[in-house]
Nucleic acid binder design. Sequence first.
DNA 1: GAATCGTGGGA
DNA 2: TTCCCAAGATT
Length: 323
Amino acid sequence: MPEPLPAAPLPGAAELPALHAALDDWFAANARDLPWRAPECTPWGVLVSEVMLQQTPVVRVLPVWEEWLRRWPEPSDLAGEPAGEAVRSWGRLGYPRRALRLHAAAAAIRDGHGGLVPGAYAELLELPGVGSYTAAAVAAFAFGRRETVVDTNIRRVHARLVLGSALPSQALTAAEMRLAASLLPADPGASVRWNASVMELGATVCTARAPKCGQCPVRESCAWLAAGEPAPTYTPKGQAWHGTDRQVRGAVMAVLRLAEDPVAPELFYRAPADLGFEPQGIAIPLAALHRLNAAPEQLERALAGLLGDGLAELHLGGVRLPA
DNA sequence: GAATCGTGGGA
DNA sequence: TTCCCAAGATT
C-alpha cells in the first residue's frame, strides 16, 4: 500500500548530527533524576519501572517502584511469592493486570533465563506484559542496545518536529517506526541517549497540552512551529468512567486488595451498613462500591471479568486475590 | 483495527 | 465541575 508523503522534508544526513547534539546537551542539563536511570539500577529494576510506567505518571510510580525493589530485589524473589502479593502491593497504580503479568514474567525469567532479565529484544518480547515498546526500552536502557524505542512521547515529538502535526496519528503506524529508525544515531551509546532524551523532551517540554516551546532546544527545527502550530486534525475521544463496568471492577479490586480473608460475593451486593459492618477496614471500600449503585448484572460482569483475568479466584465460597 | 483495561492530578 | 491523558499490552 502506498503511503502519503511526509508533510515536511525529513531531516537529512547533514542535519541529524546537530539535532542529536542539541538534545544530548539538553538532556545532560535537564534530565529528571529518576532512580531507574541510576547506573547501579539493575535490568530488573528497569523492567519493573517500564511496566509500571505504562499509562501511569512518574510521580505515582516512584514510591511503589521503591517498595517493589526493596522487597523483591531480583525476579526470583517476586516469583517465589503468591501472585496476589504482587497485585496487593501494586496498590492504586491502575491496570492491575500489569502486576499479574510482571509476576508471571518474573517466573519466566527464573525458569527460562537463569533468573536474569534477558537483554535481547526478541526474548524480552516473549515475557508476559512486555510488548514492542517495553522490549525495546529495556534492551536500550538496561543493556545499552541500539533499539528503535517508540512511545507516546517520542511519537508526539516526531509528529511535531518532523511531520509538522500537532499530534501523532491515533494508531502507531509502520511509517512512524521507519521514521524513528531513520532518526536513530548509528552509535549504540548515542542511540540510547537519543531515545531517552526525545522521550524526556516529550514528557516535560513537548507535552500533549500547552507545550513549552520557549524551553525547547530544537524549536528552530520544529516543523509544527514553522507551520504556525496547526490544530489537531482529529479530536481524541475521551475514556468513559462514571457508571462503567471498569469503575465497578476497580471498586471490587479495592475491596480484594484490602481483604485479609476471602470475601463472600454477597457482600458486593449489599450496603455495609445493612450488614452491620463498622466503617473501617474492608467496610470502607465496600461502602465506596455500594455508593456506585451498580446494577447486579454489572457486578456480575465485573466479578466474572476479574475471575477470568486471574485477578481474583474463588476460595471456599469467597473471592480473594490469586495465590 | 477497535475495544478493553484503573487511577488520580492538573487545566 | 468536567475533561484530558499518562514510558501500552492484549484480544
